[in-house]
Amino acid sequence: MSSSKLKKDNLSQEDLLNFSELFKLMKPRVMSLVIFTCAVGLLTAPTIVSTQDAIIGILLVSMGAGAAGALNMWYESDLDALMSRTCLRPIPTGKVNKNQALIFGITLSVISVVALDYFTNRISAGILLFTIIFYVLIYTIWLKKRTSQNIVIGGAAGALPPVIGWTIATGSLSLEPFAFFLIIFFWTPSHFWALSLYKSDDYKKANIPMLPLTNGIETTKANIFVYSLLMLPVIIFPYVINFVGLVFLIPSLLLTIYYNYLCFDLYRFKKNKFSAKKAKSIFGYSILYLFLVFVLFLIDKIL
């Protein structure tokens, strides 16, 4: 095999590796949640969208979410290097440098917003732009290192993708997509505070004021339980506004009550102590819970 052929093969392998690392900057796990919730918002809307337009819209929203993730990693690369949960991300490991991440994140942001405006409508593009700015400037740069309520306020960014899905289909806002927003917004604190309990050493190293560090274990457990209880009226809300029927309401209430039980079980554990196993169970179940609730929106729509 010629040296030029070997050189080309090595270049192609390097290109693939670099693309893989850039993709990791987009937080693929978060993107998968964005794709799913955005699709549910779009599919449950009263307006039928062509398959092609739906795919384009959802991909552009996920690209915007990935852009926000890349900018988050660019800004927090020093913190990521200190935490076991994030130390293997592309920037701390040296596989991508900060300038590359910044350029990549800004480029994706511009492309996703402009393209969404072109292919769908201005309101969807506007909400996507707001989501990216809110996540990067308000949550990442301003709130995260300043307040233990960072995840509560910052949760608004993660709650907007299904709203964008709805506006892609309808071109307008109404009360129904607000139900999606409320579910994710009130779900976020208990989900992340459960994680922060058994990863508190990580957050301490990075000097991030998560609730267990600023207010203690007992307050964190109480807040997790309270926010799980707030999911009850939030889950009932779509039924109250006639967005869904009993097909959604009954199973989603059962799922929520079990979530309440898990959070209460953690709360009643020894005073000022917590069970890592119970906290991990809440974190794991919360992911399944949100997925199933949004699946129920689709089932209710079909039936």
Results as ranks from 00 to 15, higher is better:
96 V>K: 07
127 I>F: 03
194 A>M: 04
245 G>V: 13
44 T>S: 01
115 A>E: 00
161 P>I: 14
11 L>Y: 08
163 V>G: 03
167 T>H: 07
119 F>G: 00
198 Y>W: 13
94 G>I: 09
50 S>C: 10
287 I>P: 02
268 R>Q: 15
73 M>T: 01
70 A>G: 05
244 V>R: 03
254 L>N: 08
76 E>V: 00
240 V>R: 01
263 C>K: 12
124 S>G: 03
303 L>I: 15
265 D>W: 06
84 S>D: 15
62 S>L: 02
159 A>E: 03
283 F>Y: 12
236 I>T: 11
36 F>N: 03
39 A>D: 00
121 N>A: 15
299 I>N: 11
122 R>N: 11
191 H>K: 02
205 K>Y: 03
78 D>L: 04
80 D>N: 09
294 F>N: 09
118 Y>C: 02
88 L>V: 06
20 S>D: 12
216 G>P: 15
242 N>W: 12
26 M>K: 01
136 V>A: 08
149 Q>Y: 12
96 V>C: 12
110 V>E: 11
39 A>P: 00
283 F>K: 02
263 C>R: 12
185 F>R: 04
197 L>V: 06
106 I>C: 04
86 T>A: 10
154 G>E: 14
230 L>F: 08
291 F>D: 08
113 V>F: 06
237 F>Y: 15
297 F>E: 11
275 S>F: 05
289 Y>E: 06
32 S>P: 09
71 L>H: 04
223 N>E: 04
258 Y>M: 13
111 I>N: 03
144 K>M: 05
102 L>K: 07
60 L>K: 03
289 Y>T: 03
158 G>E: 07
108 L>A: 03
46 P>H: 08
11 L>N: 15
303 L>N: 13
68 A>P: 09
201 D>L: 10
2 S>T: 14
170 T>H: 10
160 L>F: 12
205 K>L: 12
69 G>V: 02
132 I>V: 14
15 D>I: 13
196 S>R: 05
168 I>E: 00
10 N>Q: 15
219 T>D: 14
21 E>G: 01
133 I>D: 02
114 V>W: 10
72 N>C: 06
128 L>K: 06
